[in-house]
Design a binder for these strands. Structure first.
Length: 828
RNA sequence: GCCGGAGUGGCGGAGUUGGCAGACGCAGGGGACUUAAAAUCCCCUUGGGUUAUCCCAGCGCGGGUUCGAAUCCCGCCUCCGGUACCA
């Protein structure tokens, strides 16, 4: 052991040894633990957020391995996606080339931090051997009816002649070229995730080890709302009817008008010669405004009468049908029934346009509402009035009764609506998975798409001339590659065209966790047998920004994989950890803009990987945001130096065999301190409280540092304590821990030595401190033997000099005795 | 607005089941070692009452339950994240 701690001189050595000894491989037997972190998009540089993300997983992986679990801890690359393609448009470098380079950089940085990954299981989503299975899933899901083609509204930039994402639209203009953005209807591919909405919602109750904020966000996102569908016939139209969805069927008799979305599919049947022009203009104005909508402000309610009247299903009354900007076409049925007396939005609209108001719900049967004096809608539940045979029912009973009656009349019935939409996944991009579809005019005149046969997978991304194909404008990039787009029809063998669109990269990350189990398997995406043993993932660590999209798609795909017989679980992850952000030293998000970016590379070269690791874990609990602090990092480096000096100062004690037992005095104190620390550290790591685990080791080091062992027993105790300290430190500061362990005679790496059990005889209390309160205020403290009884302790407490003085002349009315903690004497 | 989370010293944070608030670290102060500095080691460090002792106050604010509340309940305030004419 060197006298001074130079992390740079020991860290690479241990990293090489771990790799050489294949310590991070799955053994295939024993109790498993699958620890997974969200795989990164390999950008040019790793930042501190990555470091923290992988560290949380790494500490757990190292801990569980030492505990003897069969740990799977893999890493891979979410390599397909927009950034590489956008960069290519800028500088002309091929995304594949850039990705290879970035992966190499990323991997080298990861290794320098000492993560314990099994690199033989590395996967890269841009590898055709990976994305072929995306295509395979697509084909299977198409057979299951989970894939379909639909029309969807997209943002179309007139100047770029291409589809752009919502985020690229700024105030109705294209972010890149400032040209006008239009809404266009375009065909796209979609997954029918809504078939699983109810299951995705129900299963949230099982995910007890997920953070509330994530399950709550998913619940909201799925947005289940039970109610009724009600069909209104249209006056003068026999072959079509307007269907509305409502959660308040009990207010049906209060309907005084209907409102439809400006782009409602039945609009042409509603308008007449007088209203057609006005409606057209209104719809066009709304489409134009859609992109401009600002957050946080509710636009003024505007509407236009369509000219049509709907017929009330019970009363037969004719109510006007309006078009208005507050009804959205893709929720519910795109049409609503308006009850201005009992809905605030409807009330405001009715007031603005002079529509009639009819009250049908009251607080009590007697408390009738004067609609002419109404200042706001009465939105609460109550009792139904003016509702024919339903009058007198409570709102709750009325909703059920009306829904049932509608069903009998064949004019609707109970219905459930979800906020969640299907997942449109086709992208007009190059750097993604090609959709395995061919269009043939002869075999598929409707252009629904012919599935590429399974044995022709993968449909590979063609190599391209970057500057010609990746321009960011015009038709999708792959449409400009003739050798890709022109193919033969799998049915007739004649000329055909391939689908030019690629898949959303969220597809790649829906099932990668299962691919790690058998990353090289040629015959299937997942080895079902291995999956049965290894799933679910025990702990999944990642950023909370993935709370809905990724984690919902991920759960959906697992359900599909179960339906395909690939996995046995319905939910992919048992425990989810969403880690907080690492901010800059100024408390702001690390960014070039603020000049507050701290590079992991710099920290490793300055303080060593272990100090960086210790800081990141010590700064706060995993789910909290932390601020980078140079002073705190130095503090951690100082701590590791103290550890080193302690180990170095006592290294001669290592030769004393662990002939331990029957100690007394200082030797016993040393052993007690070490075993108590071990007990607490173990407990802290189990509950993911890494910051306090490190604090426990610091306490131990503070206790041991001043002690200079003199007897054999003390030397042996000290050597044991330092070995245990190395174990406790090993998940967080593995390199330093290994070096100390080796210097103290270990020939095996720490993870093979196992995680020792603490000795209960040493952690038990030798004396118990009782706080003594009088009327709840702390007034003294006594120390007693653990076996002492309640009465005896109470007597001692009252006899204590300070206490007895305070009790002088007062009567004790009550004595509270909390074993091992405190005594509270209540006096009059 | 609604849903979720948080609010504790100068700072980051401990406090696991209602039981001694402030572990551990940073910053700051004092001392030891040194020719000196750095490094290291030791001590102090919530505020107030002129402080070895002792007393009072104190965990965003105001109430409540309890022998006892950072912790439970009610009503507010502030911040963070999500979401929004959702019928």
């Amino acid at each position: 052991m060197q006298e001074t701690y130079v992390p740079q001189s020991i860290e690479p050595k241990w990293q090489e040894r771990w790799e050489k000894e294949n310590l991070f491989k799955l053994k295939g037997q024993g109790e498993k633990r699958y620890i997974l972190e969200m795989f990164p998009y390999p950008s040019g540089k790793m930042h501190m957020g990555h470091v923290r993300n992988y560290l949380i997983g790494d500490v757990l992986a190292r801990y569980y391995r030492a505990r003897g679990f069969d740990v799977l801890h893999p890493m891979g690359w979410d390599a397909l996606g927009l950034p590489a393609e956008n960069a290519a448009i800028q500088d002309g470098r091929h995304p594949a080339e850039r990705t290879r380079e970035n992966v190499a950089h990323f991997k080298a940085e990861m290794k320098s931090i000492g993560y314990s990954y099994d690199w033989d299981r590395e996967i890269t989503t841009s590898d055709p051997e990976y994305y072929r299975w995306n295509q395979w899933f697509f084909l299977k899901m198409r057979q299951m009816g989970l894939v379909y083609r639909r029309m969807n509204r997209v943002n179309w930039c007139v100047s770029c002649a291409t589809v752009i994402a919502n985020e690229q639209v700024k105030d109705g203009l294209c972010e890149r070229c400032n040209a006008v953005v239009e809404l266009r209807q375009m065909p796209e591919w979609a997954f029918r995730i809504t078939r699983y909405s109810q299951k995705l919602l129900d299963n949230l109750d099982q995910l007890t080890e997920w953070p509330d904020r994530v399950t709550s966000m998913q619940r909201h996102w799925i947005g289940r709302s039970p109610g009724a569908e009600i069909v209104f016939k249209i006056d003068g139209v026999d072959d079509a009817a307007l269907s509305v969805f409502t959660t308040r069927a009990d207010t049906l008799f209060g309907v005084t008008y209907l409102v439809v979305a400006p782009d409602h599919p039945l609009m042409q049947r509603l308008v007449n010669d007088e209203t057609r022009q006005a409606i057209l203009e209104f719809a066009a104005a709304q489409a134009k405004n859609a992109g401009k909508q600002k957050r946080d402000e509710e636009p003024e309610k505007e509407g236009v009468f369509t000219g049509a009247y709907a017929i009330h299903p019970f009363t037969g009354a004719k109510v006007p049908v309006w078009a208005a900007n507050f009804v959205v076409s893709d929720y519910g049925t795109g049409a609503v029934m308006s009850v201005p007396a009992h809905d605030q939005r409807d009330f405001e609209f009715a007031k603005k346009y002079g529509l009639s108001i009819r009250a049908v719900i009251q607080k009590t049967p007697e408390a009738s509402i004067d609609v002419t004096a109404l200042e706001e809608a009465f939105v609460n539940d109550g009792v139904m009035v003016n509702s024919e045979g339903f009058t007198g029912l409570s709102s709750e009973k009325g909703r059920a009764a009306i829904a049932a009656a509608l069903k009998d009349k064949n004019l609707g019935g109970p219905a459930v609506t979800f906020r969640q939409r299907d997942w449109g996944f086709s992208r007009q991009r190059y750097w993604g998975t090609p959709i395995p579809i061919v269009y043939c005019d002869r075999c598929d005149p409707a252009h629904e798409g012919i599935s590429v046969p399974e044995d022709q997978l993968p449909v590979r991304l063609p190599d391209i001339d970057v500057s010609k194909v990746l321009t960011g404008r015009g038709e999708p990039p792959l449409a400009k590659v003739p050798e890709f787009i022109n193919t033969i029809c799998p049915i007739c063998g004649g000329p055909a065209r391939r689908e030019a669109e690629t898949m959303d990269t969220f597809v790649d990350s829906t099932w990668y966790f299962a691919r790690y189990l058998s990353p090289h398997l040629k015959t299937a995406p997942v080895d079902a047998e291995v999956a049965a043993r290894m799933l679910p993932v025990d702990i999944y660590v990642g950023g909370p920004e993935h709370a809905v999209m990724h984690l919902l798609y991920f759960r959906f795909w697992t359900m599909v994989m179960k339906a395909l017989g690939l996995v046995t679980v319905e939910e992919p992850v048992k425990r989810l950890v969403t880690q907080g952000i690492v901010n800059g030293p100024d408390g702001r998000k690390m960014s070039k803009r603020w000049g507050n970016v701290v590079s992991p590379r710099d920290i490793v070269s300055k303080h060593g990987a272990d100090a960086a690791r210790t800081f990141v874990m010590f700064a706060g609990p995993p789910e909290k945001d932390i601020d980078w602090s140079d002073e705190q990092v130095e503090g951690c480096a100082r701590f590791l130096n103290r550890v080193w000096r302690l180990a170095y100062a006592n290294v001669k004690s290592a030769r004393f065999a662990d002939a331990l037992g029957n100690e007394s005095g200082r030797a016993l104190d040393i052993r007690r301190a070490a075993h108590r620390a071990l007990q607490k550290v173990t407990d802290d790591i189990e509950r993911l409280s890494f910051n306090t685990a490190i604090a426990r080791v610091m306490e131990l080091v503070n206790t041991l540092t001043p002690i200079k062992p003199e007897t054999d027993a003390e030397e042996a105790a000290m050597a044991e304590a330092i070995r245990l300290m190395a174990v406790m430190l090993s998940p967080v500061a593995p390199h330093l821990a290994e070096e100390i362990s080796a210097s103290y005679g270990a020939t095996e790496c720490l993870q093979l030595q196992g995680w020792p059990a603490f000795d209960a005889a040493l952690t038990s209390q030798t004396e118990v401190a009782y706080a003594i309160q009088i009327n709840g205020k702390l007034r003294g403290e006594i120390h007693v033997a653990p076996e002492m009884g309640k009465d005896e302790i109470l007597a001692l407490a009252k006899a204590d000099a300070k206490i007895s003085a305070q009790l002088e002349g007062k009567a004790i009315r009550k004595e509270i005795f909390v074993p091992n903690r405190l005594i509270n004497l209540v006096v009059g």
